[in-house]
Structure formats: structure tokens, C-alpha cells
């Protein structure tokens, strides 16, 4: 069985700062990491590999050449194969063009049973790429997976919702998006680090390699564009401090809320 894990290299937002004028991330000197939710997706794939026979885990990423590092880390964690989609033709892609490129690459890899993605990337927070890949490929999807079981050619997943969860069964091939509750990602092994850096462990694929339709890629293939990003000013509404005994204050509060038709 083949599992494909999509992962993205992102700036470590614990250390990132925002340019106050341009509203963009200051990436200089900020370490790059594997997007945390994607690490959970990879961990789940590696767990499935450990618990079952004949599983191959392929990690796939679209990004600049330096995203190679994230893929090598995935190899050091235990992935079998790594593919980096890197081409100027992909640059400027929005989530639709990104998911289209990834879906085309997945088609090109072929013969997959499970695609695992992280819920969302910490630098964009859209949570769109995973679900869009499933739509492009015409396969079922279960998002926000916090528990997963493989039974024959089916998966049974606990899908987290705000105040509970669904238990959903789906037939492979299927796409799943992982949340951090799914598992605790392992550390890469030191021996794995060295193996991951041997020769050409990361395959580089261009747009041509996956026979992608250029009109679907990059800025051209992106139906959305970011015109401006900014940090909204803090709200300046004045608060009101109630006075009196706790009982009196509770009474006043209830009256005020009723007055605003909030209760």
C-alpha cells in the first residue's frame, strides 16, 4: 500500500516577526521547519507503516529548492521516498493552483491508497489545500482527523468538531487531513539524518516532469490574489466597570445584556 504525505516548509512562527509597514512576514534569519500539522500527517503514515506490511511512504512538497531540507527531515523520520516539486512556473500559486499542482504530481506518482495532509499551514492558515487536492483527484476526504484506524480497504476516522467528533468511515483511496491531537510526531533519528543526506534521496520534479498544464500554475493559474495584508488596529471600545456587591453587579450585568438583546 502506498501512502503519500503532503508537507510544506514554513517559517517557524514562534520566531517570526511582521513587517509593520508592508504587513508581510520578515523571513530573514527565521528558521524553517516542517509545518506542524504536516508532521502529524507524516507521523500517522509512519505509524501505519510500522503496524502493517508492505507500506511505502512518499513525502511530497511544493516549494523553493531549500524546501529540500524539510523533505530530508521527513526522510530522517522514516519516510521512504521524497519528491520536491520545484519550478519557477509554480511560484505565486494560490491555494487552488497549489492543490492543482500537487494533485497532478500525485496522479503522476499514481497507485496510492491514502493521502495524508496537515490540517493547515501556520504561515497561511487557509486549510484549503488538502480538501482541494481530494476534489481535483475526485476521491473522498475526511478532514480534522484526530484518530485513525485502517480496516481492510477502509479507514475509520474520528473527525474533530468544535464540541465533539464524528466517526466517519471512508473507502480508499482517500485523503485525510491531520490535526495535532492525532499523534505525537517522533524525532528524526541521527542515523536517519545521515542517510537522508546521501546522494539524491530527494527527487526534483519540474512542471514538465509531471506534465502539468501551465495555464493552471503559478500566478496565471491562481483565481485569487493577495492585494494587501495588514494587522488590524486594536479595538478601542471603552469597557465599563460595574460597582456594588457581587449580587448587585450580577443583576446590573443581566439588565445590560438584556438591554442589548444578548440574552
Amino acid at each position: 500500500m502506498n501512502i503519500i504525505v503532503c508537507l510544506k516548509q514554513v517559517p517557524d512562527t514562534n520566531e517570526v516577526r511582521i513587517d509593520p509597514v508592508r504587513g508581510t512576514l520578515i523571513r530573514d534569519g527565521v528558521p524553517s521547519i516542517i509545518n506542524p500539522d504536516d508532521k502529524n500527517a507524516l507521523e500517522e503514515a509512519l505509524k501505519i507503516k510500522e503496524e502493517n506490511e508492505d507500506i511505502k511512504v512518499t513525502v511530497l512538497s511544493m516549494g523553493p529548492p531549500q524546501a529540500d531540507m524539510a523533505l530530508r527531515e521527513a526522510l530522517a523520520m522514516g519516510a521512504d521516498e521524497a519528491i520536491l516539486l520545484s519550478d519557477r512556473a509554480f511560484s505565486g500559486s494560490d491555494t487552488w493552483a497549489t492543490s492543482k499542482a500537487l494533485a497532478t504530481a500525485i496522479d503522476h506518482i499514481g497507485n496510492y491508497s491514502i493521502i495524508l495532509c496537515g490540517r493547515q499551514a501556520i504561515d497561511g492558515d487557509t486549510a484549503q489545500v488538502g480538501p482541494q487536492i481530494a476534489e481535483h483527484l475526485g476521491i473522498p476526504q475526511i478532514t480534522y482527523v484526530e484518530e485513525l484506524e485502517i480496516i481492510g480497504d477502509k479507514v475509520v476516522a474520528k473527525r474533530a468538531i468544535e464540541d465533539g467528533y464524528y466517526v466517519i468511515e471512508g473507502k480508499m483511496p482517500i485523503l485525510l487531513t491531520a490535526i495535532k491531537e492525532l499523534n505525537e510526531p517522533r524525532y528524526p533519528s541521527i542515523r536517519g539524518v545521515y542517510k537522508a543526506h546521501e546522494g539524491n534521496r530527494v527527487k526534483n520534479w519540474s512542471a514538465q516532469d509531471i506534465k502539468a498544464d501551465l495555464s493552471n500554475l503559478g500566478l496565471k493559474g491562481s483565481p485569487t490574489q493577495v492585494n494587501k495584508s495588514f494587522t488590524p488596529p486594536g479595538r478601542s471600545g471603552e469597557g465599563e466597570i460595574l460597582s456594588g456587591s457581587p449580587k448587585e453587579k450580577a443583576g446590573q450585568l443581566v439588565l445590560k445584556l438584556k438591554g442589548k438583546y444578548l440574552i
Partner: peptide
Amino acid sequence: KEQQMIRRIMRD
């Protein structure tokens, strides 16, 4: 690159 990755892993 290996040493850099090992530093990150060890720090984590």
C-alpha cells in the same frame, strides 16, 4: 547540513 539538522533535532 547534517550537523545543522542534528542541532535542530537535539534542541527540540
